[in-house]
Every structure is written in C-alpha cells, then in structure tokens.
C-alpha cells in the first residue's frame, strides 16, 4: 500500500459518500445516470470474485464489501425507492450501455494476462470501469446545468483513477515484478474521458460559477 493508492481509495469512497448523500439528503437522483450505476455493480461483482477465496487484508475485504454494497444500494434506490425513482431522468439516460458490457467482455477475451475464468472477468471489470462513466458524462451534457453534489461526485470519481495512475508509476519503480499494463492503459483511457469535465469543473470553480457543460 502506498499513499497514492490510499488517496485513490479514499477519493473513490468519498465519491460514493457524496452520491449517497445527494440521494438520501435530497431524496432525488436527478442528473444521475442509472446506467452508469448499473455498470459499476457489474464492475465490482466481476472484479471481486476472489472476495471469499483470496484474503489479502481486512482493509481490502472491507473496502470490497463497501463498494459492492453501496453500488447495489444506489441501483436499488434508483429503481425501487418510491420517492427517488420518480426523480430519475429516464429520458436523458439513453446511452446504450449494453454495448459497453459486450465490448468490454469481448476485449477481455482477447486481451488478458491468463486465459482463466478469474483473469478474464478481472480484465473485463477493468475495461468496463474505464467506460462506465460514459452514460453519466453524456447525461450531464444533455442535462446542461449540473447540481453541485453531482458535479462533486463525478469529480471525485475521476480523481480516484488519476491517483491510481500515480500508484502504478510508484509501484513500477519500487516493485520489479509488478505487472500492470492492462490496468494502467485502461486507467489512462478512463481518466482521459474526464479530461473535458475536469476542464469545465476547474473553470466553474475559478469563476465561482455554476458548472455548465456545453451541449
């Protein structure tokens, strides 16, 4: 464990807390893409298959349970909670995310470290996580004005993988055998998707103005 990775995990946790806060405090999920949340459930379930077989540390196990539990809770809330599901902008959340699942799985069948069930699903979860934010970013551009909590949610979500890239660079120099090209390339692509969002987020922060994404 290094400071970059810990910062990344904490930033990831903060993004989930901000989203849960927004949904529970405002009893609204307006501006939130249900499709992105469903993709995250698939990412965590596919990646943490080793949850009960390989014990790495209490921290590792607890965080995996938190990520799986919170992503399921958010999807449940947006689909089932009476008050919240009414505020879901279904007509704005139109990204065909099934293609992202299919594409990531096909890519995992082609590009992986070992052709084993667990490795294929791990690579699948890495590729899917890189594109999982797309429905959310498309929805933000469609909905124009972004409320503060939603903007902060996306910002922390983008920042977490940026910290992980620093972590991979650090591990590359400190651990000779470290194999990381799948996660690193995918992490770079993932963070690149946030580039324009980060730009507009910074502008809105500098001008102390509301976050506006060009349609």
């Amino acid at each position: 464990m290094n400071i970059f990775r810990f910062a990344g995990d904490m930033t990831h946790l903060i993004s989930i807390v901000v989203l849960l806060l927004k949904i529970y405090a405002t009893k609204s999920c307006s501006g939130i893409s249900l499709k992105t949340q469903e993709l995250y459930v698939i990412v965590f379930l596919a990646r943490y298959l080793d949850l009960f077989t390989d014990f790495i540390s209490v921290y590792n196990t607890v965080m995996k349970l938190v990520f799986i539990g919170s992503s399921l809770a958010i999807v449940w809330c947006m689909r089932m909670h009476r008050a919240v599901k009414r505020t879901y902008d279904k007509e704005l959340d139109t990204f065909r995310h099934y293609f992202l699942v299919l594409g990531s799985f096909v890519l995992a069948l082609l590009l992986h470290e070992k052709f084993t069930f667990q490795e294929i699903f791990w690579a699948f979860s890495i590729y899917l996580e890189a594109v999982a934010i797309l429905p959310q970013l498309v929805m933000l551009q469609r909905s124009g004005n972004v409320d503060n909590l939603t903007g902060q949610y996306v910002f922390f979500l983008g920042a977490y993988r940026a910290f992980y890239i620093l972590n991979w660079i650090y591990r590359f120099f400190t651990e000779p055998h470290f194999s990381r090209w799948i996660a690193c390339l995918s992490g770079l692509v993932q963070t690149a998707f946030y580039a324009d969002f980060f730009y507009y987020y910074f502008i809105s922060w500098k001008n102390n103005a509301k976050l506006q994404l060009p349609a």
Binding site: D50, D54, Y164, R171, H177, F178, S179, A183
Partner: peptide, 10 residues
Amino acid sequence: GAPPSIKDEL
C-alpha cells in the same frame, strides 16, 4: 513468494 500482483488493489 509470488511477485506482488496488481490483484491486491481494489
């Protein structure tokens, strides 16, 4: 032991 793989990450 086995080289530290990336699988110890979240």
